[in-house]
Design a protein around this nucleic acid. Structure first.
Lengths: 281, 281
DNA sequence: AAGTGGTCTAGACCACCTG
DNA sequence: AGGTGGTCTAGACCACTTC
């Protein structure tokens, strides 16, 4: 325990590599050796071993089960893109979607939400937290804020099935007109992790959406977090300069979802995505 | 050191809360006490303290600087949505975009890329790794794969300015027609973190895009990782049932980017986003 | 009871930055 | 030189699962 200086560029790295090999050599769902066994094999302490395991867990390659062991994850985080041979159609949104209302209250808007909805912070809003389920597995947690005056008599059960926009139109006479939505990557915090059933700090998508009616009046502000291991956005982009007859297709410069990439830097790009860059300090 | 059982539901939690208060009570860029000082104040060991700090760092609230200290992050990970009073336009893609080519080689496609591009694994592709910069700050790392026969004579310098699709058309006679793109949340690995200048395991967006010409022949496969702390997607969605005259607007069911949400579960949704759900084991 | 992962400690050494 | 973050250790106790 005295010698062996042996330039070891980060034990954690070495452990990570070893773990990756373990994962790759095993089928999804297969168990790997216990933490203590791996510590001995690799000659590292448990915290060091665990730190490396943490990384593979957030990356989605390993899962831990308390009291049982560690296993190779079943779902790859990056799946095959357009696996179908002649897929000229995108896959449908699969599974059966349902909702479970976790919270349904009327509260004061408060500063943040009031500003977004363009109403007084003292104005009342209907606040709804609901879990979105796909095939009975949690997929996302969604927080809705709607000015209370727009949805008198709304009940929790109304939010567990059907299209909310249809309900707004048919029962409350509110017709949604447009929305501005942002999408960013994030990692789950404790609450989100618990609710959607993933480890803390797992990759996730954060959506924020402000919806307005034809007069420009905000009608809903939605904040939602989708788990990253089972959810991704897939879109088909039409890139032709000339639109095919009979159907207006946006050029890629107009299409929400394609990074400015090569298009940017020309100044006249109608940019739909923005890298909201903070100037260096 | 003997008594004080005092149900302490996770010291890490308590430390995290304390750190959050510290961050909120300080201006962006302001320093916070050192790790050792905080350990003493809070009565926890350094690993515990560091574990809590790690979380705020991945969340984007704190930054560490080796040998200097810890500071409140300057850029909020979640920014104001549509801060303009009467923003009827989306913000433009801000900043000046540029590219720096890191690698430019001709190699065999290999199994994975060959399958995506629908060419033989032995066929040659031009492989380009380039850093995307905004105002000289790294924003993304992009890996392009193009069948070599399509782009004879392509030089690295060609990839550092201008629109690649324009170049494909004007110099190589290849007209891109459509693309299928997927977007998922991820966290940076060592290489990505180093190249785009963020900590390991930071939130990021992973794009994968397969682009085809009018005959359906794949012309490029792109894999790119955008840093999550400075990049987000913003899109305007038209939700009207009836399109305004003279311009075809997609219903929200057709719009790439809006989660199936309320629309799903009806079965006839033309679903553009998919939650590619793995059946439970 | 025995094994597993989950949490925490006290202390050590290194690398980096600032006086 | 002295402070800061970065890494690592050896060992402890707890909670959960299986036998």
């Amino acid at each position: 325990m005295v010698s062996e200086p042996a330039r070891s560029p980060l034990k954690r790295e070495r452990v990570r590599e070893h773990l990756m090999e373990l994962v790759e050599s095993r089928a999804p769902g297969a168990p790997i050796p216990s933490e203590r066994a791996l510590c001995e094999q690799l000659g590292v302490s448990r915290p060091t071993l665990r730190s490396a395991v943490d990384e593979l867990v957030t990356t989605g390659l390993l899962v831990r089960e308390h009291g049982r062991g560690m296993f190779v994850a079943r779902a790859k985080i990056t799946q095959e893109l357009a696996p179908d041979r002649d897929s000229h159609r995108l896959p449908q949104a699969s599974g059966t979607w349902a909702s479970r209302v976790l919270e349904f209250t009327t509260v004061r808007a408060g500063a943040r939400v009031g500003r977004r909805l363009r109403i007084s912070p003292a104005a009342e809003i209907t606040y709804i937290a609901r879990l979105r389920l796909v095939d009975d597995e949690p997929m996302a947690i969604e927080y809705l804020h709607v000015p209370a005056v727009l949805v008198p008599g709304l009940r929790p059960a109304d939010m567990e099935s059907g299209d909310f926009y249809d309900l707004l139109r048919d029962r409350h006479g509110v017709r949604v007109h447009e929305a501005v939505q942002s999408i960013e990557p994030t990692v789950t915090n404790e609450e989100e992790a618990r609710l959607i059933g993933v480890p803390v700090l797992s990759p996730a998508l954060l959506f924020e959406r402000l919806t307005r009616d034809a007069t420009g009046r905000p009608v809903e502000y939605v904040h939602s977090v989708y788990r990253g291991d089972r959810y991704r956005i897939v879109s088909r982009l039409a890139l032709d300069d000339a639109a095919p007859a009979g159907r207006a297709r946006p050029a890629h410069g107009h299409h929400p979802g394609i990074p400015p990439g090569d298009l940017a830097g020309r100044g006249d790009v109608p940019a739909q995505m923005l890298g909201d860059v903070q100037p260096a300090p």
